[in-house]
């Protein structure tokens, strides 16, 4: 090239690989929890309460990350907790995305009455404080996996709707949309075939962020004991229990917190990384 401007290239940064690696590992561990987990996550043994992790004196072989005050194995509980966290992330994230993005696309591209209705709905929805709203919802629906997912979807669809609407409006003003009209394509066809591919990268980033948020919301709900049944292992539940005994057994709090932190971070980094890597326009 004579012109130096063509020489810039985007490389897939380490953040894409690291986050994909962590999430991939987590999926495998979660799926394999019944076989991989060294102990029964529910088995209590008060004789083995508050055992430290393996590298500290007083550790018991087999309890790699120690035990909580009831003598339950922390590692096994984290692995079983990952099953719930990932289920919520995938199902709630995807449903939120589908509903929110579809409404946002309609409002932003079709405009008119559909925009009026959807935008007002979003405005009203966003006037509710989200955490209180979700706690209220689960309290009404009763605890359980279905309630958690329903709460997340009902609260967070506005996030997609707003961003996708703005993006669809920008794209709708581009000449390629007018050009599709000149070619004789209908409104719905233009929305699906011309606009959607251009908002897809944004939707992808939002989706991964939403999965991270879903993990957090689930943790918050189990932290306040509104998740699935109380003794099932959840990261939020473990954090809540660990908090009470942090001065005697920090590991009960720190390990689930770390798992939560890495997972949420990985989801957000995965989205950005994928966008950098696979967006033909950015490249």
């Amino acid at each position: 090239m004579l012109d130096g401007r063509g020489a810039i290239q985007h490389r897939a940064g380490p953040r894409l690989w690291l986050s994909a690696l962590w999430l991939g590992l987590l999926v495998v561990l979660a799926l394999g929890a019944p076989w991989i987990a060294p102990k029964d996550p529910l088995a209590q043994d008060l004789m083995l309460g508050r055992l430290p992790p393996f590298w500290i004196d007083g550790a018991e072989p087999g309890y790699w990350l120690g035990t909580d005050s009831l003598g339950r194995d922390v590692l096994s509980r984290i692995l079983w907790g990952a099953r719930l966290a990932l289920t919520v992330a995938l199902v709630a994230g995807t449903l939120t995305c589908l509903i929110g993005a579809t409404l946002g696309l309609m409002a932003g591209f079709l405009r008119g009455a559909s925009d009026l209705v959807i935008s007002r709905l979003v405005d009203i929805w966003m006037a509710f404080p989200p955490v209180l709203f979700s706690i209220l919802l689960v309290a009404v629906l009763g605890p359980g996996l279905f309630s958690i997912i329903a709460a997340i979807v009902l609260i967070d669809w506005t996030r997609f709707a707003r961003v996708v609407r703005a993006e669809a409006m920008t794209q709708g003003a581009m000449d390629y949309v007018a050009s599709a009209q000149v070619a004789g394509r209908g409104r719905i066809g233009t929305m699906a075939l011309e606009i959607l591919p251009n908002v897809l990268p944004t939707i992808g980033v939002l989706l991964t962020l939403e999965m991270g948020i879903a993990v957090i919301v689930e943790a918050i709900l189990s932290f306040v004991n509104l998740s699935i049944s109380t003794d099932a292992p959840t990261w939020g539940g473990m954090i809540a229990e660990g908090r009470t005994s942090v001065h005697q057994a920090w590991w009960v709090l720190v390990f689930p917190l770390l798992a939560l932190f890495l997972t949420v971070l990985s989801f957000s980094q995965l989205g950005e990384g994928l966008k950098d890597r696979f967006d033909p326009v950015l490249r």
Binding site: M1, L2, D3, G4, R5, G6, A7, I8
Partner: peptide, 10 residues
């Protein structure tokens, strides 16, 4: 002039 890590501009 050069683009950092790239081609010559001037």
């Amino acid at each position: 002039l050069r683009l950092k890590g790239g081609g010559r501009l001037l």
